[in-house]
Nucleic acid binder design. Structure first.
Lengths: 197, 197
DNA sequence: ATAAAAACATACTAATTAGTATGTTTTTGG
DNA sequence: CCAAAAACATACTAATTAGTATGTTTTTAT
């Protein structure tokens, strides 16, 4: 029973918060900063969220989740050559997706780094995001096995986790070494993918 | 021309700060917190460091650098089988080194994640740490090439960066998935290393 | 149209932050 | 031993923090 305008205010807060958190980190982004850039007053903020962490959780679930879902999962068609598809997903994520700013890394990875050990609820929400990606990659690999394009003794879940951790790692290293490290990474990543054939 | 006691006070601050930062992050560890656990007064703290960031930089260079150096670089003997040595280094880092707490990840990686884009001086100091590790791995691989244990068209520097980013990634993912992800990672890491032979 | 609830606005508070001003105590070289 | 410098201690400050108390304005259902 919330008005369209109220829902818009809420979403606006979450989206602006997401951008600020992406660039500054969660704990170092203040509520005052969020309401300043959102042009929303403190009363409105704390009307929609009972505290900062509740907002943070909503931000993960309602903005980060769907956004990452689009970038990560929908980039995986899963019908042709699995290794090629996975490579293309990674390449487009690292080099083509205009959302990401190299020096700021990946918002989801950053959030895991900062908040996983600090807040159990955040940990769960972020874990679900990772698991979704994991499942998408796992599915791609399993289909690959049935059509004989992936080695039968490949462990899809294990491989999926390895790929995700590689992604997180290069997003982090890219913060200090910049784009060239992305290129190097992709080159070795391709070699690894070939071990799965 | 500083007394032994003064030097001890300074080092004590840096070491306690390192532990706190490892578990809470740099920006969310306050000077008050550091001096409380160090049993040092504010006067002493700001006598030794002109501000928090100068302390942070000293912490990276004087505590994190040598500590990581010991864990990372000296774990690489570099005379026998290079792929085996690199695998062992990674395994001992992830599973045997008693310093690391899985849910808190790796202090150096955390610091890169949090501070690389926030402070240029921190970025440089952390970058040097990473480059040292990179060089150690590169050397191992180059020696491996001369004795014919590493494929001649392997690019050692590129591989070293890939390995380091993988390490950072799994330290991060381990925060939400725990130790099993370390095991999975090592299994796939071994497969990757075999592509270098 | 109107009463009630929802949505927002303003002005506060108590705690925490990095850092400073102004001391007192230790240490050190001569 | 003793003056000067080094090393520390205490008490502050101004800014920022998350959150609240108490309003006013908008929406909504009737």
């Amino acid at each position: 029973m919330s008005s369209k305008k109220a829902a818009a205010t809420r979403l606006n807060i979450l989206q602006k918060a997401f951008e600020l958190v992406y660039q500054n980190g969660y704990r170092t982004t203040s509520v005052d900063e969020i309401i300043a850039t959102t042009q929303v007053t403190k009363g409105a903020f704390f009307y929609h969220f009972k505290n900062k962490d509740e907002m943070g959780l909503a931000m993960i679930n309602e903005v980060m989740q769907p956004g990452m879902r689009k970038s990560l999962i929908e980039a995986l068609p899963s019908n042709g050559n699995p290794t090629e598809e996975i490579y293309n997903m990674m390449e487009s994520l690292l080099l083509k997706d205009p959302f990401f700013i190299i020096k700021y890394g990946c918002p989801a990875i950053n959030m895991v780094e900062e908040m996983a050990s600090y807040n159990e609820a955040f940990n769960k929400a972020l874990s679900q995001l990772v698991i979704q990606w994991e499942e998408a990659i796992t599915t791609t690999l399993e289909k690959g096995k049935t059509i004989g394009k992936i080695n039968p003794d490949t462990n899809p879940k294990e491989v999926a986790q390895y790929i995700i951790s590689g992604y997180g790692g290069i997003r982090n290293l890219g913060k200090i070494h910049g784009k060239p490290s992305y290129i190097n990474y992709l080159s070795q990543f391709k070699k690894y993918l070939n071990t799965l054939k």
